[in-house]
Amino acid sequence: MAGYDVSIEALANCGFLDLRGGDDARQACSEYLDIVLPTCANKLVTAANGRIAFCISSNHWLLQVADGDQMDILQSLERSSAGVSHSFVDVSDLYSRIQLSGSESRDVLAQGVSIDIHPRVFPPGSTARTGMAKTTTQIHYVNESPTYGILVFSSFRQHMLDWLAMAAAKS
């Protein structure tokens, strides 16, 4: 029997870099990436080439790039930030990506996400790092169809898929 009108999909790996640093590092990164890294937590910017920078807090970003690009970008960023306080770490395998879409996506998410995801306060393009189903997630409201991206630490990937299947089920 069908449950909520949603589909749950595990997506392929992406390249991810964890970027930390002050204003100097942020500027150096922004210049190299041609993305202005936001300084406000729970914001994101999407570049023309599809790269996404999630702002975790004012000195902390998660950069999502095409898989395979991460090491080159990491090395270039290291060069651009030489002598500046920073920490850039490859975390491509730290995160797993899951996509939730369908007309009742919000009904499923609201079973496990305690933050307000009403479109008035969490419109398309929003992101937030928060708890969900007893673990940490980075939620991204991708588009109005509606589609949500869910990042989880990779050891929790199967748990989150099982949890979403449970939350979407009719039993």
């Binding site: 807090s57 790092r129 928060t130 708890g131």
Partner: peptide
């Protein structure tokens, strides 16, 4: 101050 109001369990 960075994320706004959040539940204690975060």
């Amino acid at each position: 101050p960075h994320c706004g109001d959040r539940n204690e369990d975060e």
